[in-house]
Amino acid sequence: MTEALSQPLFGIFLSLAVFLIGQWLFKVGKGFFLFQPLFVGMVLGIIMLVIIGHLLHTSTIEVYTKYYKPGGDIVFWFLTPATIAFAIPLYKRNDIVKKYWFEILLSLIIGSIISLFLIYYVAKGLGLDRTSIAAMLPQAATTAIALPISTAIGGNASITAMAVILNAVIIYALGDWLIKIFHLNQSEIGAGLGLGTAGHTIGSAKALELGSVQGSMASIAVVIIGVVVDLVVPSVARILGL
């Protein structure tokens, strides 16, 4: 039994199975936001790992590393080519990029600086400790940028990783609703940049569903925000005295 589980096939199969259940639930539940396939897949997957851990009398973390991760990593690897694929929607709307590049750049820089200060005060207000507050700051970037920056400013990298993943899950589940209640789609460029900043590549996929302008703007946001986090977060952390 455990031999079969430690094949990469198990991780790939589990990922597919929980995601397909999610898609089915989403269809049956007529698009209820908690039935978003990614969210359902994540919750069901974790529950499965916890159950297997109980059956095999080991910890969930061990089940994850020994049995899920070999296959999970294979699926995860494809996020890399999928990320570079966002160059295509970006290129398709090169007209917008050429016309508004200065505003796009400025929006992302100003937007992320304001967000950083607000996130700091929200985190402090809710009583997080110093390392958790610092971990919250680089979350707009993708994991590969956010984690080293988090460590550099004295944050807990595992909390940062959690934040980056949850950003995407939240945007995937609540994106449509948030766009509606904040009337974000009145500016297609704004909606795209916001989705790319808050939801990373998942936000970009969501933005593409809204339209080609939104999709291309979200793609550019993923790139620029990474650089902005690299440059801005360490200085802001210093200003805030972290």
Binding site: V18, F19, A82
Partner: peptide, 17 residues
């Protein structure tokens, strides 16, 4: 891009740790 939601499932499940 069309299957990016699925590709993100392992990241979601990694929260088990």
């Amino acid at each position: 891009i069309s299957m990016i939601g699925f590709l993100f499932v392992p990241s979601g499940i990694s929260l088990a740790t």
